[in-house]
Design a protein around this nucleic acid. Sequence first.
DNA 1: CCCGTTCTGTACCTATCAGTACAGAAGTGT
DNA 2: ACACTTCTGTACTGATAGGTACAGAACGGG
Lengths: 199, 199
Amino acid sequence: MAVGRPRGFDVDERLDRALEVFWRQGYEGTALSDLTEAMGINRPSLYSAYGNKEELFRAVVLRYAEGPGGHLRAALLAPTARAVVERLLRGTVEVVTARDHGGCLFVQAALATGEQGGRPRDELASWRRSGELELRRRLQRARDEGDLPGDLDAADLARHVMTTSHGLAVQATHGATRAELDRVVELFLSGPPWAESPA
Amino acid sequence: MAVGRPRGFDVDERLDRALEVFWRQGYEGTALSDLTEAMGINRPSLYSAYGNKEELFRAVVLRYAEGPGGHLRAALLAPTARAVVERLLRGTVEVVTARDHGGCLFVQAALATGEQGGRPRDELASWRRSGELELRRRLQRARDEGDLPGDLDAADLARHVMTTSHGLAVQATHGATRAELDRVVELFLSGPPWAESPA
DNA sequence: CCCGTTCTGTACCTATCAGTACAGAAGTGT
DNA sequence: ACACTTCTGTACTGATAGGTACAGAACGGG
């Protein structure tokens, strides 16, 4: 049995190029011609390898979650609740300020969309929620281990942390530098100047 | 001199309808047909009254800044730094959870865009920066008045607050409720559970 | 009442959108 | 070397994007 002409490009490598485009321009801001140009392949190759624009985006998101977005999961391995939070936020700062374009794909690629961007938008929303859920479970464990006050709601703290993480991503899109965002993390960890010691 | 047929609609009222659409769908996610349909006017009327899509968007943003986005400026009038911050964040929570669609126009209408959305995106970024600047000046004054520690950088605190404000807007887009976001504000104000008293 | 001016509605423009048909190129297994 | 399969490149599809020409409707001033 014959096996056919082999594909002339590496699917994962070109997926990374698509990732860059979606990251910078968002789902609806990216045209197929932007993708084929950046990926160095033509339209039928794209469709045969990835399905269509929406499925390509889904593949991109998955790759982002395992690559740049992986700092969240990594942070959960830190030994204490405070260390988890610090690693998570410092990881966020690093990712959102790494490229010339700033920000986080999960946040900016499809935050508000028209009808055709509805599915990608909902999927990103789901990714954000699931990240928060993982953090919450880790903090819950910390509380069970006595690493956090017993009267503290782990869900609230997780939401607080993720709010800042997503906010850092927004800050990066309008030009905040890494040093500036690092100071945000420090202020987060130490609390506002009027903070009192925990009861 | 003749004066011509009067316009058959109220420019500001229809602008509010356009605001709703851009708020929900973002700049690039909104088609002209979405706008004309929601505004109840036809294309030539839209062009003659507002210029084009980009200028209409600019008018919408201005109106947003004076309406829903006005809570920031209002918060600056509070007497103490802490009260300013609390009012600002509580105002954010209210705005981003008010409609069935969540979020903040400044954040979500054009965060990452293609080429044609570049100007709107940059303008929103500029609005976000200028909001932070106003808060920073207010906090600077608070520090001068002894309302904040002398070694505290007002720019850092302002950035910290705006990071959370923008993060709240993102949270709202994936379904966080008002009660949940209110607890984020409370955690922000009290600091994380491991916070120590300010030196 | 009627002229001049401005708005409204229809119908159209070009460009671009996502997606695909089809023919030829480039391989592999026999 | 040949047959079979799969990929690549060109060229196209219908739909929709933002934007506009033009004719007629609706007013105000004289």
